[in-house]
Amino acid sequence: MGGALRRIATNFNVESRAHRLLDQQKPRPAPKHPKTAEKIAQYQRENPQILEQQQRKDESLLGMLKDVKVVSEEVEGKRLMNEADAAESQKKARPLPQNRKANPGSPAVFLEADEVPEGRLSVGQAMELLAKHKRNKNEFNAERLAQDYKMDLDDTKKILEYFQSFKVIPVIDGKDIPRIKGS
């Protein structure tokens, strides 16, 4: 019932409201900045032919526009596709994965990159580098680790100084989490 009342109210006196709206003054453009208005006026004084050309209808262009004929045909249930649409539809046709859980055989929580460029480390390699250095600091010093992992010596020193391995802090029975000293 409410929809019918709303429809009646919106359709009431539509024609006169439309005429009233069309009779209103057209919106004025925003005023131009004085410097911009000066430059436009100066350009119009220097190039009056461009202003005349802009206001005149070009008959040759109108004739060409009249010659253009556009025909659109659509096959039932199918539309014509360009190459991008076809590639997108093929991607969508690919079946979605059914198993959304992590691989049970993978001990890592994160996925390792297949290729790591020289001078960079994956997270697993960084953990391995830190573990080697922690086990034997004399044998696996910064110079040797930089050679082994093909990294810059300064970067390796900074990794050993500032990077730490991940620590798991278990929360038992909702007790308070231990805080870092100084916070």
Rank of each mutant, 00 (worst) to 15 (best):
E38T: 03
K39P: 00
R45D: 12
E46P: 03
M64G: 07
L51W: 14
P48H: 01
I40K: 01
K32E: 05
E46I: 15
P48N: 07
H33T: 02
L61W: 09
P48F: 03
Q49C: 11
L51A: 11
M64K: 14
E59V: 11
K32N: 03
Q55C: 03
M64I: 10
P31N: 05
N47H: 15
I40E: 04
P34D: 01
E46D: 11
R56S: 08
R56D: 04
H33G: 04
K35I: 05
M64C: 04
Q55M: 13
S60H: 10
Q53K: 14
Q53S: 08
Q53F: 15
K32Q: 06
D58M: 05
H33A: 11
E59K: 08
G63F: 14
A37K: 07
K32A: 08
E59L: 09
G63E: 14
S60C: 03
Y43H: 00
I50G: 00
E52H: 13
Q55Y: 13
R45A: 15
H33S: 09
I50K: 10
R45Q: 14
T36N: 04
Q54C: 04
R56K: 14
L61S: 04
D58H: 12
Q54I: 09
I40Y: 01
R56W: 11
N47P: 04
S60N: 07
Q49A: 15
R45M: 13
Q53R: 13
R45V: 15
K35Q: 10
K57F: 14
K35D: 09
H33M: 05
A41E: 13
E38P: 00
E38M: 04
I40T: 02
K35T: 05
Q55E: 13
T36G: 00
H33K: 05
I40R: 02
R56P: 02
Q44Y: 10
Q53A: 12
H33I: 02
Q42E: 10
L51I: 13
P34C: 02
Y43P: 00
P31D: 07
T36Y: 02
E52M: 14
R45Y: 05
K39R: 09
Q54F: 15
Q42P: 00
A41V: 07
K35C: 02
K39G: 00
K66S: 07
L65R: 14
E52K: 15
P31C: 06
Q49R: 12
P34T: 00
K39A: 03
K66E: 13
R56V: 02
P48L: 05
K35N: 06
T36Q: 10
Y43S: 00
L65Q: 11
A41M: 11
L51S: 06
P34F: 01
N47F: 15
G63D: 12
A30N: 05
E59W: 13
